[in-house]
């Protein structure tokens, strides 16, 4: 069965056209404190939050949280902690023993504690997954209510690779016991200013 025969079979077997529904956003609107709900949800998915008084405190606060991090990649202009620099030529396997990656998040989503980051924010696609620990920097003003708003925010992006990231990697595959740190980052901290 080739492409043509699959498409023909579908054409023959599909039901009569059913209209595509519109998404009525008013159904999902809520007047809530976005920052507060984002905090709660991020904590519930195993992420940590550090609220900065001023963005100048960033590096000091990161150091406090990750005192042992030696190999650090920073893709953010606000942090000067990088010990290793990367470019789009960097071979992803060479990031194997990165302790900490610091990345600017584009925005957060209140309903699920996720942040959106895309390739431009971290240069090498493997970085946010292969780094042992992850720091994301997010402005309080960049938190949206739900995924409908989120997709609106990224609708005009250059589509290469991007990810909604909600907390550190985790698994409950052994007797349903939640263990943080499966194949991806062992911890995820969002620094909010």
């Amino acid at each position: 069965m080739s492409r043509a025969s699959i498409l023909n079979a579908i054409k023959k077997n599909k039901p009569e056209s059913v209209p595509l529904p519109q998404i009525d956003l008013s159904l999902f609107h809520e007047d809530i404190d976005l920052v507060d709900i984002f905090y709660k949800n991020l904590e519930s998915v195993g992420g940590r939050i550090v609220s900065l008084n001023t963005i100048e405190d960033l590096d000091a606060e990161i150091k406090k949280r990750y005192p042992n991090a030696k190999s650090i990649v920073s893709c953010s202009n606000t942090s000067q902690l990088a010990t290793i620099s990367i470019s789009n030529e960097t071979e992803p396997h060479s990031l194997e023993s990165i302790d900490l990656a610091i990345i600017d998040a584009q925005f957060g989503v209140a309903e699920n504690g996720a942040v959106w980051i895309s390739e431009n924010d971290f240069i090498v696609r493997a970085l946010p997954f292969i780094a042992n620990d992850l720091v994301l920097i997010l402005s309080k003003n960049d938190i949206c209510l739900h995924m409908h708003e989120a997709y609106n925010l990224i609708s005009k992006r250059e589509r290469t690779f991007g990810v909604f990231l909600s907390g550190p990697s985790k698994t409950a595959d052994i007797e349903q016991c939640l263990v943080i740190g499966a194949q991806g980052a062992m911890s995820l901290t969002v620094f909010i200013f």
Partner: peptide
């Protein structure tokens, strides 16, 4: 934009998480 609908439903229905840790595009 329909991903907004499905990603809101998927993980909550699956494990009660608000979304999976990684939703990679």
């Amino acid at each position: 934009k329909h991903l907004g609908v499905f990603l809101r439903l998927l993980a909550r229905s699956a494990t009660g998480q608000p979304i999976t840790t990684y939703s990679s595009h």
